[in-house]
Amino acid sequence: MNELYILFGLMIIGAIAAIEMEDLLSSVISVSAVGLGLSMAFLVLKAPDMAFTQLIVEILCLIILIRATIKKDLPFSTSGRWILNTTITIFFIVVFLGAVSLALMELPEFGHPLMKVGEIYLRDGFAQTGATNLVAAILQDYRAYDRLGEVAVLFVSFIGVLAILRREGRVSAAESKKDLI
């Protein structure tokens, strides 16, 4: 459990840094550190599917937030030092391809998964919940937290649409702009 406490400590430090940071970009990166720590915590707690989901969502959010916080485009130089740049690029491509091929070697064979959770669902799902629809048993009983989260996201998105598209806010904003002019 020690690595879990280290991860939680890092996540708390990242969250505090995200609040205290003056620069917007730095605080975005601190928040992303919290999310990556959470995905590693899922991995330590033996929930790799949640870890993958968290990692993908985190990277997407990070890219969108960085794009939103940077005002001007990133500098992209095309002239000078091209030998060094190309060498570094090829080096990293080779390193990542080697790492990926090593990781693929370690994968279990098709049809022999390491995850034993699905087996337990299939064997005991009916006996434990009494639902003949096993999908409902998993979604509404074993994974009820997930379901609550999904439904809450839907509800919050509805309220968000109502708040963004409400008439009063837009009208008053237009009027205040008129006042300024």
């Binding site: 919940t129 009494g130 639902a131 003949t132 409902a136 048993a137 509404q140 009983d141 009820a144 379901r147 439904v151 839907l154 509800f155 998105s157 509805f158 649409v161 109502l162 598209l165």
Partner: peptide, 27 residues
């Protein structure tokens, strides 16, 4: 059967009905 699952289904159905229709109506 299945204890609490039917009631959870009803609750989820109400939320999805209201939210999806509401988003469409607002847009």
């Amino acid at each position: 059967s299945a204890g609490v699952i039917p009631f959870l289904n009803i609750a989820i159905g109400l939320v999805v009905l209201g939210s999806l229709y509401g988003i469409f109506a607002a847009l």
